[in-house]
Nucleic acid binder design. Structure first.
Lengths: 162, 162
DNA sequence: CGCCGTTATATTAGCGCTGTTATATTAGCG
DNA sequence: CGCTAATATAACAGCGCTAATATAACGGCG
């Protein structure tokens, strides 16, 4: 017989997921309020980066943003449909250089302002609580490097009798 | 001219997403090592709950797990394909009662052990860092209740000159 | 008593976010 | 000419959401 329901304790990550989703939603809301259509939040990162580096190849951009080249390729494809970036044959005819269109470039100042505002907000939030969330995340990451999640799980796993 | 690239500071949530994904992956790995096929981590929550409550309708279950009824409906559909739950006409012909199959029930002891191990691990991790991640998340949530993300963003948003 | 509109439930289609692997294309290079 | 590298694309995986649909139940009212 099972004593008590362990799921009385909620999924420990649920609240975290909710928090992230809610924050993302409010960021997008700010975009919409500014009348920016068709620019999804995930476009901002590559767009801003490109504005500073100048045209890059997919792989260069991917490396620069710490994403897989495939993921970036898809994001770029979506951005091209929105006329935010161009993809022109590069120096090497195998590569294509991704550059900003007029529209893309025109959005950068706002996106940068928004990016900074987001970071400022995160910093503000971190300041309002006893211990910064960002720091806590980093510490967990390091703790897991030291001893993996799997090892910890197995150690705590009390096997039920069959 | 734009001074410096704000995206030199990375997406503040990227590391968090990575962390969560990595943890989930290791949980699933433990499942696989135990020879449990076709049971995704997200099945554990409803499965365990159902074992304790007995058959529930989709909405009851959704409410019980604090998820949308739609999300649960889809999860249940996936679980039915894995022969983990049954869906039988309920007292009211509009409703269906979701119950456990033999297979589903047989997995519960392990899933509960794993659930507890996960919580123990989270507690352990929280103990290894100066301030618990779980607490920090809760504090951020409360801070945002007090003043919304949107308000904070707008306050920090320094509009670029046109 | 039966019809009809409202309400509740469940499902499904479509979307958005993240990413992966595998395959196709193209061009460079030896 | 064939191998390799870079890119692109397709299919898939996971998480979730909203909105539309079908069905059923309930309640009122003629």
């Amino acid at each position: 017989m099972t004593s008590s329901d362990p799921t009385a304790l909620p999924d420990p990550w649920h609240s975290l997921h909710e928090l992230l989703a809610a924050m993302d939603a409010e960021i997008e809301q700010v975009y919409v309020e500014r009348g920016i259509e068709g620019v999804r939040p995930r476009f901002a990162y590559p767009l801003i980066r490109l504005a500073h580096t100048g045209p890059l190849t997919i792989r260069e951009l991917a490396k620069s943003l710490d994403r897989s080249h495939s993921a970036i390729s898809q994001t770029i494809a979506a951005m091209r449909k929105e006329d935010l970036v161009t993809s022109e044959p590069g120096p090497d005819a195998r590569t294509r250089r991704i550059g900003l269109t007029e529209r893309g470039r025109s959005l950068v100042p706002f996106l940068e302002a928004e990016w900074r505002a987001t970071h400022a907000t995160v910093a503000e939030l971190d300041g309002e609580i006893p211990y910064a969330l960002s720091t806590a995340v980093e510490e967990v990451r390091r703790a897991l490097e030291h001893r993996s999640m799997r090892q910890r799980l197995l150690h705590h796993l009390v096997e039920p009798p069959r």
